[in-house]
């Protein structure tokens, strides 16, 4: 896999307080990297360091091999971003805003602007003043602004903040599409777990300025064991049998049967035993752990307090 962004041991200290503590991770081509953490954990600070808005105390960030510190222009030209809300010049039209940003990069044609406007679906309103736009439209304009120069890396800080469900979905679809079709690396930050679950391929959890975990989304949500729910007749009997087999496991009674964490290869064994004991099985299904469960699990495991 091609690594597009390398965060190398980055530390940021403000007035003696360590905001970001030796953070390191990579983001690859074509993947959506979610940056997850409670408020105040340092998500926005990290993102601002990646785009050069905030300097770092030590460490380095490389974008396609160019350091953001020493080769700012070379590095940043591959990056498109929205940092927090997409603030635009409200007294100008959407189009004028785009022209303004287009002038600041090289080789953006009028056709390219029109194409981008079309992509985010703002063609009808692009010549209206930005102050007449809804938040969703501003978000779309913000997306257009960061796609103008065909960046290889897209950075979105809390992109769905304040959007309604339709708006959130729209952003999500755009992000996935861009990662798949244009092979972009996308870095998204959020404290909304459900949203990350649907958007990201990999997530990094940050807490109190430290990266405490980076995992593939699927691994992260599942862990090693999956939870299986077995629909049976006579759940008490069934749960007793399973407890005999695995005294350590947490077996729970559910509405229609029992639920327990299991490794995949153990599933046939359990079914066989239940069948031999004359338990009627109507179905076996995998229950996905929610991201929220896992998030709370991980953050509390690592011994930190979550303050919101």
């Amino acid at each position: 896999m091609d690594t597009l962004v390398e965060i190398q041991n980055v530390t940021k200290t403000i007035k003696g307080r360590t905001i970001i503590d030796s953070l390191s991770f990579n983001v690859n081509k074509g993947e959506v990297f979610g940056f997850l953490g409670p408020n105040g954990a340092g998500k926005t600070t990290t993102i601002r360091m990646i785009v050069g808005l905030i300097g770092m105390t030590s460490g380095d960030i490389k974008i396609l091999g160019h350091s953001i510190k020493t080769e700012f222009e070379q590095a940043i030209k591959h990056v498109g971003g929205i940092v927090e809300n997409p603030e635009m010049y409200k007294f100008m039209s959407g189009y004028q805003n785009l022209v303004h940003y287009a002038r600041m990069s090289q080789g953006i044609t009028k056709e390219k602007i029109a194409e981008t406007v079309e992509f985010v679906g703002l063609t009808d309103r692009i010549h209206d003043k930005v102050k007449t736009y809804s938040l969703g439209m501003r978000q779309r304009l913000g997306l257009a602004q960061c796609l103008l120069h065909d960046p290889k890396i897209l950075i979105l800080d809390e992109p769905t903040n304040g959007l309604d469900p339709a708006g959130i979905r729209e952003i999500r679809d755009h992000v996935r599409k861009l990662a798949r079709e244009k092979d972009m690396a996308v870095i998204v930050s959020s404290h909304l777990l459900s949203e990350m679950e649907m958007m990201c391929d990999r997530i990094g959890i940050i807490q109190q300025g430290k990266l405490i975990d980076v995992q593939l989304m699927t691994d992260f949500v599942q862990g090693n064991e999956k939870i299986y729910e077995i629909e049976v007749e006579g759940k008490e009997a069934a749960s007793r049998i399973v407890k005999d087999m695995y005294p350590d496991s947490r077996v729970q009674l559910t509405e229609n049967g029992i639920a327990l964490p299991l490794k995949k290869e153990k599933v046939p064994e359990v079914i066989k035993r239940l069948v031999n004991q004359d338990i009627q099985i109507y179905g076996v299904k995998e229950v996905a752990k929610t991201l929220e469960d896992r998030f709370l699990e991980v953050t509390s495991q690592k011994g930190g307090l979550i303050h919101d």
């Binding site: 785009v51 050069g52 808005l53 700012f72 222009e73 070379q74 940043i76 030209k77 990056v79 971003g81 929205i82 940092v83 927090e84 809300n85 997409p86 603030e87 635009m88 010049y89 409200k90 940003y101 600041m104 990069s105 090289q106 602004q145």
Partner: peptide
């Protein structure tokens, strides 16, 4: 004040 500085400074211009 407008917050536009954030978008202004992430262009390939020093």
């Amino acid at each position: 004040n407008w917050g536009t500085i954030k978008l202004l400074l992430i262009r390939p211009i020093k």
